[in-house]
């Protein structure tokens, strides 16, 4: 087993809305990412993927609030730190984050090099512009981005180029962990592939040590990450290797997700997509028992009584269901 770069234990966070209602979007989430590895997070819209990404940075501001749990980056627990200290010494250095739709949020009146100067000087005011330029040029060239991009404004860049630039700016300080939230979902397939190639290059060169990649597109996750976690209504319901999660899922929801995969490969046309009926529960008042119960075709009375624990099956493989592995496999075999 490699060195653990990111470890999260039972992290729970919530939003407090304008009407003072609590929304439990991240509920007792635990995960571990080793050096050189990447972890994918899948799940449908609203299940809490983006909130988890935000929560992992340990930097909370309303409406998001920390409730409990630990975030340990390379041996250092950051969950008790003051927001100001997190901002100064953790963000960008230890952990970097690319928000969903970040590329559309770039200030259009600044050149790319100015974003980078801002990021670097916030951490090290003594660094000269010339040094920063050299640092940026080296990074850009190592990931196949022309240095001329540094002198451009965001509007002058195509979607794919803009997204790769956003990633380069985010990792300029060489963070240990990169969290990328749907970094390629709005792009054409060819630009998407270039973004993925860039992330892989950053990992392979050791420039970043671990990555968390979020998307609802399973074929993409399967190709990008080593492990996959499936999230449902704020909780992790399945965790395993990418291969296990895609070809041999255990949790009924994860199983359902696999039925929604669409790829241009032979056999797809005859394989009928399986839609999961119904909608996820309201996170303001999640059900007491299994959160998937209302949509699960295997639901039994005991599913609705109390919260369901994770079951461990084999190394690093887990799922959250009252049914045993054997029962589930039998159920799937019988359709």
């Amino acid at each position: 087993m490699g060195k653990v770069i990111l470890e999260v234990r039972e992290l729970t966070t919530k939003y407090v809305t304008r009407f003072r209602e609590d929304v439990y979007a991240v509920d007792h989430v635990s995960l571990k990412v080793e050096e050189g590895k990447s972890l994918g997070i899948a799940g449908e819209s609203g299940c809490g993927k983006s909130t988890l990404a935000l929560s992992l940075m340990g930097y909370y501001f309303p409406p998001l609030h920390y409730i409990s749990g630990d975030i340990i980056i390379d041996g250092k627990n950051i969950s008790g730190m003051k927001p100001d200290d997190v901002r100064k010494s953790i963000l960008g250095r230890e952990i970097a984050y690319i928000p969903q739709a970040a590329m559309n949020a770039l200030n259009p009146t600044q050149k790319v090099i100015h974003f980078i100067e801002d990021v670097v000087q916030a951490h090290d005011p003594t660094k000269s512009k010339k040094d920063i330029y050299e640092m940026a040029r080296a990074l850009f060239e190592s990931v196949g981005l022309p240095a001329s991009v540094l002198q451009k404004y965001p509007v002058e860049l195509s979607g794919g180029m803009k997204q790769r630039t956003v990633i380069a700016v985010a990792v300029i300080l060489g963070p240990k962990v990169l969290i990328a939230d749907e970094p390629s979902s709005a792009l054409d397939v060819t630009s998407q592939k270039m973004v993925i190639k860039m992330l892989r290059d950053l990992m392979e060169s050791g420039f970043i040590k671990a990555m968390i990649f979020i998307t609802h597109e399973l074929p993409l996750l399967y190709n990008v990450t080593d492990d996959i976690m499936v999230m449902y209504a704020g909780q992790i319901v399945e965790k395993g290797t990418a291969r296990e999660a895609v070809f041999d899922p255990l949790h009924p929801y994860a199983k359902g997700l696999m039925g929604s995969i669409i790829v241009p490969e032979e056999g797809l046309r005859s394989a009928k997509l399986t839609a999961i009926p119904g909608v996820p529960p309201n996170l303001k008042k999640p059900p007491a028992g299994c959160r998937f119960a209302d949509r699960c075709k295997y639901v039994r009375p005991e599913c609705r009584v109390t919260s369901i624990a994770m079951r461990e099956v084999g190394e690093g493989r887990m799922y959250r269901c009252v049914m045993s592995e054997k029962e589930l496999r039998e159920a799937y075999q019988n359709g």
């Binding site: 060819t190 592939k193 270039m194 993925i196 074929p219 190709n223 790829v263 241009p264 490969e265």
Partner: peptide
């Protein structure tokens, strides 16, 4: 051909060297 090869798939390998 390019559109098809650039889509991530699950049975065939997704070749990143062609970008």
């Amino acid at each position: 051909k390019r559109l098809i090869s650039d889509v991530p798939k699950i049975y065939e390998e997704w070749d990143l060297s062609t970008v």
